[in-house]
Write a protein that binds this DNA or RNA. Structure first.
Lengths: 110, 110
DNA sequence: AATATTAATCGTTTATTTGCGATAAACAAT
DNA sequence: ATTGTTTATCGCAAATAAACGATTAATATT
């Protein structure tokens, strides 16, 4: 996984979009997010009943979603209540929308 | 990476969305897609001038986008012209839109 | 037939991801 | 103080991803 030595970097927007997409790149995490956005509102690890995964694995997925900024957790002993991180969720929404709306209708050659 | 032995499977839609997202989960592939959807229309490996990556690596990324169904390549010797796979691109667009529009405005608790 | 161009594929290395069980941490309730 | 509940973290194994250079394949051009 070496990288060419030149000091190249992708644009922040590109990096951000890729980071969000990567976080969405696993069925379990899609389900978690659907749960959080669908369901009345916040949630915790009763995801265990929805997902075919061990507790530690689900915890790991939650961590990745948190690291990507898509969810946030409120410590509410002994439970933790997870919610969509509304602000970043909206940013993600805009970035994806922008990607797919890229004016590529204008000319069509294939 | 074992999996619990029960014959669980995610819904097709969830799998599909995750597959698309995963393909979008790398900055280089975002750039390729923006190029294809932005730029007049189709394209080939002059992506090499845009990306800080070796030819073989770019080829690999193109393959992943193709496997995910997001692009298609027309052999036009000795070059290959890559294009957005319009049909699947639209499906992806819809799936992401749906995810982000999940009626989660109704109740807000955090 | 020989050469040049373009892109895919092979083989390798390193890093990251996915998954699990076991253990630890944090706190409420007894 | 002990116990129970919930979640995070650790340590490990296996799988996948990312990157590269070298090689091959396909086809135009000379």
């Amino acid at each position: 996984m070496q990288r060419s030595s030149s000091a190249f970097s992708y644009s922040l927007e590109t990096e951000q979009l890729a980071r969000f997409a990567k976080a969405l790149g696993h069925p379990a995490r899609i389900i978690i997010l659907k749960h959080l956005s669908n369901q009345s509102c916040c949630y915790t690890g009763d995801l265990l009943e929805v997902l075919p995964l061990a507790q530690s694995t689900v915890s790991q997925h939650l961590k990745e979603l948190k690291d990507a900024g898509l969810i946030e957790g409120e410590v509410l002993p002994p439970k933790i209540r997870y919610c969509i991180h509304t602000k970043n969720w909206n940013i993600a929404s805009k970035l994806f929308k922008k990607l797919f709306e890229e004016d590529f209708n204008e000319i069509k050659c294939c």
